[in-house]
Amino acid sequence: MQQLHHLLEVDNLSTSFFTYAGEVRAVSGVSFYIDEGEALGIVGESGCGKSVTVQSVMRLIPSPPGKIVSGQIRFLGQDLVKLPEKQMTTIRGKSMGMIFQDPMTSLNPVLTIGRQMTEVLQRHEGLGKQEAMDRAEKYLEMVGIPNCKRRLKQYPHEFSGGMRQRVMIAMALLCNPKLLIADEPTTALDVTIQAQILELMKDLKQKINTSIILITHDLGVVAGLCSRIIVMYGGKIVESGTVQDIYKSPQHPYTWGLLKSVPRLDALSRTKLVPIHGTPPDLLKPPVGCGFTARCAHAMKICAEQPPGITEINPGHQVACWLLHPDAPKSTFDEKGRVG
């Protein structure tokens, strides 16, 4: 891969939170990239570092206590880690937009939707009030909100949850950003609305050709939108590959666990969901070896002693697991979700 053509390239990123108890290594040594027009999914359970990763990219980590300890974030030819805050504000909202998990609390309750949308355009594109209103109206229409003109004058509490998330999406896209980061955009919504929002994002990705990083803990959500998936666990990337790679030939026991815990409509009614037992590692004292050792059915002695290296199964499909070492015993995962 020619590095110059990646839109965003994160290299060996580590972000920690310095608390009274000590350093919490929320993200350690994460590397990934995303190309223009591509959609990338980041999956993993709560606390695995997926939100911290993208918030590091946006430089939105609350600091103190949070800090990017090491690594590079290359975006449009600049290293965002080293960029002064003032310049960072010219990238946020303009070249990079973000949507958050809870649309009920992510909009300012005392400002009208129109005000919250137009301020982005006034800031980044220097539009006048009327021009900005016109553009905002156009974008609200694009995300499927009826009566846009009237809606612009309303306050967030006059919108439903799904409608607010549509507003958030429209607001993040106002300046046609190169990259849209969606941090669990459907988690707080009910299922039918989830489907609508995902459909909308898919549609918009085509229309304005923006790259999307979609964060979720729901593997079902990623498949429809993304072409590549990153699986994170305990602040590290354990497996990454195309949707095909991850769904058809997952290699990491944690990915197996995730896939087995996704409910499927086409499954037999008696098929039980299999949870992953145990809890994620304490990132205040990260384990020496692989973070998943304690919960892994296939763990070996070496897993607890040394961190696994990265094995490339085929171009683009990378796994960090000792089971792929040539000397390891054979463990596989079949399509019906059984581990043999």
């Binding site: 504000t89 010219t90 946020r92 909202g93 303009k94 809870d102 992510s106 909009l107």
Partner: peptide, 21 residues
Amino acid sequence: QDYIRTAKSKGLPGYIIVLRH
């Protein structure tokens, strides 16, 4: 609050976030 994070993610300068939001 979340909406302050949203305001930051929109690239607004600090004084606008404090005074307006």
